[in-house]
Amino acid sequence: MDSILRSTNFARVLAIILAVILWLFVTGDKITRTTPSRKVWQDVPLRVENLDQDYVITDIPTSVDLTLEGLPDDFEDLTIHELDAYVDLTGKEPGTHLVRVQGRPPRGLNLVMLEPEQVRVSIEVYHSDDFPVEVEFLGEPAEGWELADWVIDPESLFIGAPESIFEQVDTIILYVDLTGMRSVERINLTPLVFDEDGNPVTGLVIDPLEVAVRLVLERIPEQVVEEEVEEEKEAEAETESGN
């Protein structure tokens, strides 16, 4: 056995075997790196291009799946933020449209497929206007106090929304709870928007989101007189007890 291991022929055969193994390893790695592969990216954000400035999207899928092809090195360090999927809404009017999804692959990669290939997009006219703020008071001030004056700022709010929602807007109400208040109070409150049936309306752009309220409360005159009389009685009682 030792003689076989020491023989020149065995050494040559072993060298050839090792060389073949090394060649296969290097060649295999080279083939892997030079052979294109495909990768599917899921939930790629779907964006919109060329939407008329007077319109707004009310319904559209938020993402699509995207299949790319390229060399392994081109996929290294690639993130979903570098992928681009979009719909082109050039010339699209209000309504629901079936629109082709498009994409732009990163450099060095090819776009193979988008799933779905088409999406439904709903478009509406965007409306906006200023609406006055109505104030409704709740509760009662502290005993012996009453509301003398109040000021809100601003007195109207900007409302914006798609047409189907904007048409529901009827009133903007600011509810002010006076419970336990006295003297001068300053508070910031969030107004609520209602339709003509008194139901809340959501999905609006409201600016500003809060209204500043300044409340001036004064002592009730009758209460002041009663307290003065009571104080005089207490003073007289103290004087008499002192004598």
Score class of each variant (00 low, 15 high):
V135T: 05
V87R: 03
D207I: 11
E231D: 13
E196R: 15
S241F: 11
P154C: 01
L71F: 07
V20N: 06
G91K: 00
D54K: 14
E69C: 02
I206L: 12
E218F: 09
R38W: 07
E236S: 09
E185A: 15
L68K: 04
E115T: 14
R107C: 01
D2I: 11
V201K: 10
P200D: 02
D2H: 11
S128C: 07
D73G: 06
R47Q: 13
A237C: 08
G144V: 00
V64R: 04
D84E: 11
V193I: 12
L83N: 04
T8K: 14
N50M: 05
L157R: 07
W41S: 11
Y126C: 07
R186Y: 05
V125R: 12
P162A: 03
P61T: 03
E69G: 01
E185K: 15
V225C: 01
P191R: 08
L178C: 04
E76H: 12
V169G: 01
I16S: 08
P200C: 03
S7K: 08
E124H: 02
V213F: 06
D65I: 00
E196Q: 14
P208M: 01
L178Q: 04
V20F: 01
P106M: 02
D207F: 11
E232Q: 14
V225N: 09
T79S: 13
D59K: 15
E124A: 01
V135L: 05
V225K: 12
L138W: 08
F25G: 11
T27P: 08
G28P: 10
D29G: 13
I16P: 02
L215E: 02
